[in-house]
Write a protein that binds this DNA or RNA. Structure first.
Length: 491
RNA sequence: CGGGGUGUAGCGUAGCCCGGUUAUCGCGCCAGCUUUGGGAGCUGGAGAUCGCAGGUUCGAAUCCUGCCGCCCCGACCA
């Protein structure tokens, strides 16, 4: 029992850390606030990334790459933007080190100060819009539909593996359009792509919504988001899509000539999801025995463990497994055969459960003689004995069932954790009790929002795009409200 | 940045109050044998400048001073 994990009930935060580290996703690094993403965790990210990339390209976007460094002056061009990011920027001030003349190691060469400091990008709107100025002259140049896969740095005071690290990986889409309507359509299109990806591939149900002004992206006119709910009842923002209006076009002077020969500012969007999604996955599906990874993005979908005494028993098993692997691969299933001899079967069972592999096959001599294989699904722990004939097709179906089961379980949890409240007492009681989202009326005033945050530590996660439940009175002030919004404590 | 905690082998730890042989134990690691259907057993072995610097002392993991790192709670945030 070398890899005990703390239960969710005992210590939820520790449980999360245990899953990330003992599940082999990531490790702490020598750099404060930065993590090492290990091969298994990176493979998971790659599957997420590849699928999103496909979806972006299907909707007409192309990938490009912009510099990691941003001249300091760029950041201050858009007033809200600089205010939002200034206090968490890493800054490059010098370009050379030298040996300390006073002896010992290296020092920053004081003669090598940069004329203008460079910011390590916390997001790329400014460097990209500075570039778009040279790309866009006519309505014929529009739309510009660019995505970038990159790392960014935000100097957070407190960090958590995957959920909030100083450096993280993400994608950021930056588009330019001729009209406000078109830009808004793009904003919502990408929100829908995120929602579809998170629900259909990660098996996590989302709530689509709009942020209140105080939660809006720095520099955006409107921020749309998908919100998810973790098992401890806290909300996690899983993705955002921003309608930037003409803010960045004005800040970087990006104009185009319309068909009617009029000079107008371009309309913009930006949208992103990050490695934080990995954290969402861990917390949405994991259990007290480890990770539970939805089949559609699992690095390993099926693991095969042999059971044998001695080499003479192993040879026929190897041969049979060879056949199985061929058939599974032909069916497009990602399969791993773990016949390593330094760990015994029991150890492997626990290990692959910890890693959240959706299906385990166990094949021993006695299975072989009756032409069956033991099949164990990770989500329900159900053990079955299946005939070797027709195995690939049956597994394909099982993987689909697991995917569906994970989603429906998470959806039930979400639905059960959206609770209406019409007064502060109820709102607080729900937050302190079962947690989750509280659907309540809000008068639209930022000060009311701030006050509720002070009182309850809950923020307005979003104004849901779906039905608002009709008119009512603000949960705090009693002033009239057109619709309900969702409050929650959040990551 | 404020409050609390902590630092001994890759990981988890005992020893510290009350200074004294070769720093304890478990996991992991290496070798060999036996094992293999839910985290194997036995035997042998490797692995630690006790966070760093200074001080007190015949003698410091242990006492004193200073510094540093990390973790948790808050403010900030995807």
């Amino acid at each position: 029992m070398s890899k005990e994990i703390v239960s969710r009930a005992a210590d939820y935060s520790q449980w999360y850390n245990d899953l990330v580290i003992k599940g082999g996703l990531a490790d702490y690094s020598a750099v404060r606030g930065c993590m090492v993403i290990k091969p298994y965790g990176f493979s998971l990210w790659e599957h997420m990334r590849d699928q999103l990339d496909r979806m972006f390209k299907e909707t007409g976007h192309q990938n490009a790459y912009f510099p990691i460094f941003i001249p300091k002056s760029f950041l201050s061009r858009e007033a809200d933007h600089v205010e939002g990011f200034a206090k968490e920027c890493a800054v490059v001030t010098h370009y050379r080190l030298k040996t300390d003349p006073a002896g010992g190691g290296l020092i920053v060469d004081p003669d090598a100060r940069l004329e203008e400091e460079l910011i390590v990008r916390p997001t790329s709107e400014t460097i990209i819009w500075n570039t778009y100025k040279t790309w866009i002259q006519s309505y014929r140049d529009l739309p510009v539909l660019i995505n970038q896969w990159a790392n960014v740095v935000r100097w957070e005071m407190r960090t958590r593996l995957f959920l909030r690290t100083s450096e993280f990986l993400w994608q950021e889409g930056h588009t330019a359009h001729a009209t406000s309507k078109e830009a808004m359509e793009e904003t919502l299109r990408m929100l829908e792509i995120y929602a579809g990806f998170v629900e259909e591939f990660m098996a996590i149900p989302v709530i689509r919504g709009v942020k209140t002004p105080s939660e809006r992206f720095a520099g955006a006119v409107e921020t749309y988001c998908i919100e998810t709910l973790m098992q401890d009842g806290k909300a996690l923002q899983a993705g955002t899509s921003h309608f930037l209006g003409q803010n960045f076009a004005k800040a970087f002077d990006v104009k185009f000539l319309t068909r009617e020969n009029a000079l107008e500012y371009v309309w913009a969007t930006s949208w992103g999801v990050s490695t934080r999604l990995v954290g969402a996955l861990v917390m949405a599906h994991g259990d007290d025995d480890g990770l539970v990874i939805p089949p559609r993005i699992a690095p390993i979908q099926v693991v095969i463990v042999p059971v044998y005494r001695g080499e003479d028993q192993k040879t026929p098993i190897d041969q049979e497994v060879g056949q199985i692997i061929l058939k599974l691969k032909a069916a497009g299933i990602r399969v791993k055969y773990d016949d390593s001899d330094h760990n015994r079967p029991g150890w492997k069972f626990a290990e692959y459960e910890m890693k959240g592999v959706p299906v385990r096959l166990t094949l021993g001599s006695r299975d072989l003689s009756s032409r069956v294989v033991e099949v164990v699904r990770r989500d329900t722990r159900e053990k079955m004995s299946w005939p070797l004939e027709g195995l690939a097709a049956a597994l394909e179906q099982l993987l689909g069932q697991i995917q569906e089961n994970l989603f429906s379980k998470a959806r039930t949890f979400l639905t059960d954790h959206i609770t209406p409240a019409d007064d502060m007492e109820t709102l607080t009681a729900i937050l302190d009790g079962k947690g989750g989202f509280v659907s309540a009326h809000w008068d639209g005033n930022p000060q009311t929002e701030e006050k509720i945050k002070e009182l309850t530590k809950a923020t307005i996660r979003c104004i849901p795009l779906e039905a608002g439940g009709g008119e009512g009175k603000c949960v705090l002030t009693g002033r009239p409200s057109a619709r309900r919004v969702l409050f929650a404590r959040a990551y």
